[in-house]
Every structure is written in C-alpha cells, then in structure tokens.
Simulated scan of single mutants.
Amino acid sequence: MFHKSKTVFVSQLLFVFILIGVFLTLMMLLHNKHYLLFSFMVLLCSILPAYWKFEKQPLKTQTMMFVAILVALAVAGRVPFAALPSIQAASFVIIVGGISMGPELGFVTGSTTALVSNMFMGQGPWTPWQMFAWGLMGLTSGLIGTTKLRKNLLFMVLFGGAWGFFFGWIMDLWFALQYVSPLSIKGFILAFANSALFDLYHALSNIVLITLLYQPWEKLFARLDRKYQFLPTKK
C-alpha cells in the first residue's frame, strides 16, 4: 500500500512539474508578457497536490489557517529585508513549514509566499520562477519531514545552506534562458557566476536561522499541534 501511494504521489508531482514547465516555457516564448497570468497558473499547479491530498484525506480548517499563517510569516520575513539582497527569513519559514506540513502543503506555502510577497516588492517575469523555486523548496522540506533526518540539526543546516544556492541557480537559469543570446556554455557560466555572492548570502542567512531557530520552532509547532491538532496526519 505504501509503495502504491508513493508511486501515485510521484506521478502527480511529475504531472504538476510538466504543467509548470509548459507555463514557464510559454512565458519565455511570449517574451515575459502576461507574467501575472502565468503566475496564477503556476499557483494553480502548486495547489493541485494539496487538492489530491484533500480528496484522500480532508484537511482541517485549522490546517489551512496554519498554512495562511506560515505564508504571512514568510512574507513578513522577506519584505522588511528588501534592501538587503538575498538576506531574508522567508526560506527558513518555508523549510520549517514544509517539514511540519508535508510536501504537498510545503509546495503551496512556498509558491504562495513568492506571489504574495511580490505584491509588496514588485511583480515581474521572475515571479513564476520564484514560485516554482520556493515551492520546490517547501516540497523537498516536506519529504525530509517524513524521515528521521528532520531531527538532525547538522543535516538541516546543510539542507538550508544548499537551498540558498539551488534557489539562486533556478533564477539564474531563467535569466540565462531569457536574456543571454546566443545561448552558450560561457553565457550560462557568467550568469551563474554573477549571482554567486547573492546565493552565498541566501545560504548563510538560512544557515544562521536554522542553527538558532529550527529546533525551538519545531518544538513550538509540536506543542501547538498537541493543543489544536492542526498538523496533517503523516502516513
């Protein structure tokens, strides 16, 4: 049964990623026009895994409220630091949220954070790519949350640091595909190298916050769940 449910989940994710890939490709072919439309299409794709989870196991109102609170916290952890490129707390909140809520709702939390925070910081053709990158961050965190690795602080620190670079590389890929012409290995290397310092800042901010706050936040979520039972049941 477990193997079957895991296979179904992988198939669902593959379908969602294909849809997102199609939307991102269309946006580039249209020279970044209609990016808000494609942002909401990516958001819709992000919600699909949660919808499938709802069909199998109805989500409580408390759970959806907690997702909304996590998004608000992530936005609050990004917007005030807008003057400091790549230094923010949004990724930390998304990682901890994914660990607690699971891959489906982690994906929703990450992608929604990008869309909502850009309402304050400015929407643009980068928004759908940020939604995909942060959604993937939440999803992979949710997968880690189903294992014993979630209790290993060193692993979580390394995981958060790695995602500081992975996030930047996804955004570099968008930049290179859209603005580097003609495409070449040298062009890709330059695009990735130009953002290396900002990726390092992102990684370091994740490392510091996870080191200092990951365990207290996880314990806090566990205590709140014992009282209000808002976390989805992990199977």
Results as ranks from 00 to 15, higher is better:
residue 153 L to M: 13
residue 56 K to W: 05
residue 77 G to Y: 00
residue 50 A to K: 05
residue 130 Q to Y: 12
residue 80 P to V: 00
residue 112 T to A: 15
residue 43 L to C: 11
residue 116 V to C: 03
residue 56 K to I: 12
residue 81 F to G: 00
residue 86 S to R: 11
residue 33 K to H: 15
residue 99 I to Q: 10
residue 110 G to I: 01
residue 145 G to W: 10
residue 82 A to P: 01
residue 69 I to D: 02
residue 117 S to Q: 08
residue 96 V to W: 02
residue 52 W to R: 10
residue 111 S to R: 12
residue 67 V to F: 09
residue 101 M to S: 05
residue 72 A to H: 04
residue 73 L to K: 03
residue 142 G to T: 06
residue 147 T to E: 03
residue 70 L to R: 04
residue 135 G to I: 04
residue 126 W to K: 10
residue 148 K to F: 05
residue 123 Q to Y: 12
residue 89 A to C: 00
residue 135 G to Y: 11
residue 98 G to P: 08
residue 160 G to H: 10
residue 36 L to D: 14
residue 109 T to V: 14
residue 152 N to G: 12
residue 124 G to Y: 01
residue 79 V to R: 00
residue 118 N to G: 03
residue 125 P to W: 03
residue 144 I to V: 15
residue 150 R to V: 15
residue 154 L to I: 11
residue 55 E to Q: 11
residue 84 L to S: 06
residue 75 V to S: 00
residue 92 F to T: 01
residue 119 M to Y: 05
residue 133 A to I: 13
residue 153 L to G: 07
residue 133 A to R: 12
residue 145 G to N: 14
residue 65 M to H: 02
residue 48 L to R: 04
residue 87 I to F: 01
residue 158 L to G: 10
residue 150 R to I: 12
residue 34 H to P: 05
residue 146 T to H: 11
residue 30 L to P: 02
residue 73 L to H: 04
residue 114 A to L: 06
residue 121 M to K: 04
residue 44 L to R: 03
residue 118 N to L: 05
residue 106 G to R: 13
residue 59 L to W: 05
residue 132 F to G: 07
residue 53 K to C: 09
residue 110 G to V: 00
residue 126 W to F: 13
residue 101 M to Y: 06
residue 104 E to D: 08
residue 132 F to K: 10
residue 116 V to S: 02
residue 120 F to L: 08
residue 65 M to L: 12
residue 147 T to D: 02
residue 121 M to D: 06
residue 57 Q to I: 12
residue 111 S to C: 09
residue 108 V to T: 08
residue 53 K to F: 14
residue 157 V to F: 05
residue 119 M to R: 03
residue 132 F to P: 03
residue 129 W to Y: 13
residue 55 E to V: 14
residue 154 L to E: 08
residue 71 V to Q: 05
residue 96 V to Y: 01
residue 49 P to V: 06
residue 138 G to S: 05
residue 30 L to D: 09
residue 151 K to D: 15
residue 56 K to F: 07
residue 136 L to E: 00
residue 49 P to D: 08
residue 83 A to W: 00
residue 99 I to M: 13
residue 144 I to Q: 07
residue 153 L to D: 14
residue 71 V to G: 02
residue 135 G to K: 11
residue 40 F to T: 01
residue 144 I to L: 07
residue 57 Q to W: 03
residue 122 G to D: 10
residue 80 P to D: 01
residue 104 E to A: 15
residue 156 M to A: 08
residue 84 L to V: 09
residue 78 R to S: 02
residue 128 P to F: 00
residue 76 A to H: 01
residue 152 N to L: 06
residue 79 V to L: 01
residue 109 T to I: 14
residue 55 E to C: 10
residue 156 M to G: 10
residue 97 G to L: 10
residue 78 R to I: 00
residue 144 I to H: 06
residue 85 P to L: 03
residue 30 L to C: 04
residue 107 F to I: 03
residue 43 L to M: 15
residue 105 L to V: 06
residue 106 G to P: 14
residue 70 L to T: 02
residue 122 G to H: 09
residue 93 V to A: 00
residue 130 Q to K: 12
residue 155 F to E: 13
residue 49 P to S: 05
residue 141 S to R: 08
residue 44 L to A: 15
residue 126 W to C: 07
residue 57 Q to N: 12
residue 114 A to N: 08
residue 33 K to G: 15
residue 41 M to L: 15
residue 143 L to N: 13
residue 137 M to W: 09
